[in-house]
Amino acid sequence: MAAYSSEQTQTALPQGLLIDLDGTLFHGSVMIDGADRLIRLLKELELPYLFVTNNSSASPETVAERMQAMGIPAEPEDVCTSAQGAAAYIAGEKPGAKVAVIGEEGLLEAVRGAGLNVVYQNPDYVLQGIDRGLTYDKVAEAVRLIRGGAGSIMTNPDLLLPSEGGVIPGAGSIGAMIQAASGVQPVVIGKPSPILMNVALERLGIGAERALVIGDNLATDIAAGNNAGCRSLLVMTGITNKDNYEALRLQAGAEPDQICEDLNELISYISAMFRK
C-alpha cells in the first residue's frame, strides 16, 4: 500500500481524521489495545478528529459515555452519527421539513436538534434507521407514505448488527423491506455513502483532500473515504485481516492508501508523520 513518504511536504499532512468506532477503537464494550493512547496522541498533536459511526440509535452523549467507560477519551462533540448526518442532509434539502421517523431515540433527537418536525401525517420525508421496536404497521405506514410521495431516507445500509447473542438485522435489512414494497430506492446517508463523510468534513472545516479516514472495514469505512475523495487508512483490528484482505478488497471495490496491523502501529505511523 502507498504510504506518506519522507519527501512529502508538510502541506501533504492530514488536517483532520475521521475515525470509525466499533472494530477500530473497540469491540462491543471492550477497548482495543492502544485506542486510549491514540486519542491522547491526537490531542497532544492538536490534530482535529471526529468519531464517525453508522450507529443511528445512540445519541452522541451516549456514545461518548460508552467510550469513556472503556477508558477512551471522548466527548459528545467528538461524535458524528448517521442520525446526525441524516438530519443535517434533510435540513440542507428543506429546512424545517416534516419527517416521519422509523428509529430510536438517537434518531429522533438528531431530527429535532436539526430544527425538523417529527410528524406522521403528510411528511416531506420518511427517515428510517434501526428500530428494535419495529412492527408490521410501522413498515406498512412507511410504505404508504413513500408511495404517496414522501422522500425516502435511510440512515445506513448495514444489514447486520453485532449483539451479545450474535448478529441481528440492522437498518439496511429494514430498509430493504421498505424499498421492496415501496419501489423507491432510498437516499443512503451512512458509510459507504459520502454523505455522512461530507457532513463530518463540514464540521471539521476541512476539504476531503486534507482528511484521513481510519477504519477496519473496506466495504464501509474505506469505501466511504474513497467515495468522498479522502485518503484512507485501514487498521486490521476488526473486520479485515491478512487472510481475508484480498477477497474483501475485491468484493468492496475499495482500497486504502495505507494499512496498519494494529493501533500501536497506527500510533507510531502518526507520530512519525507529525514529529519529523
Rank of each mutant, 00 (worst) to 15 (best):
N241Q: 04
L233I: 05
I214P: 05
G170D: 08
E164C: 02
L248V: 13
L204I: 07
G207L: 06
A247M: 12
I174P: 01
V167Q: 11
L218F: 08
A223T: 07
A176R: 02
L250P: 00
S182V: 03
A223C: 13
A219F: 09
E209S: 13
I178M: 10
I206T: 08
G172W: 05
A181Q: 11
R249Y: 12
A228S: 15
V184E: 07
M236P: 09
C230W: 04
A224T: 07
G225I: 00
I195W: 12
M236W: 07
L234Y: 03
K242G: 11
L233A: 04
G229T: 02
L250V: 05
I174W: 08
A247G: 04
P194M: 01
S232T: 09
M236D: 04
V184W: 01
R210M: 12
A176V: 03
A224R: 10
G205V: 12
A228V: 06
A224P: 05
I206A: 10
P192C: 00
V235F: 03
N217H: 04
N226M: 13
V184D: 00
N198R: 14
L201P: 09
R210L: 03
D216V: 11
G175A: 12
L233E: 00
Q185T: 15
G215N: 02
A171Y: 07
P194E: 01
L201I: 10
I189K: 05
I206Q: 08
K191V: 00
V187A: 10
A200N: 08
V235P: 01
G166F: 13
S232Y: 07
N227D: 13
A200W: 12
N198K: 14
E164V: 06
S182Y: 11
T237F: 09
D216A: 03
M177H: 14
L201F: 15
I195L: 14
Q179T: 15
G207F: 11
L233K: 02
A181R: 08
L212C: 06
P169R: 04
Q251D: 07
G183Y: 10
Q185V: 14
G225R: 01
N241D: 13
G165C: 07
G165T: 15
S173M: 07
P194A: 00
M197W: 12
L218K: 06
K242D: 14
P186Q: 01
A208R: 12
G225N: 04
V213N: 04
Q179M: 15
N217G: 01
E202I: 04
A224H: 00
A219K: 12
T237C: 08
I168Q: 08
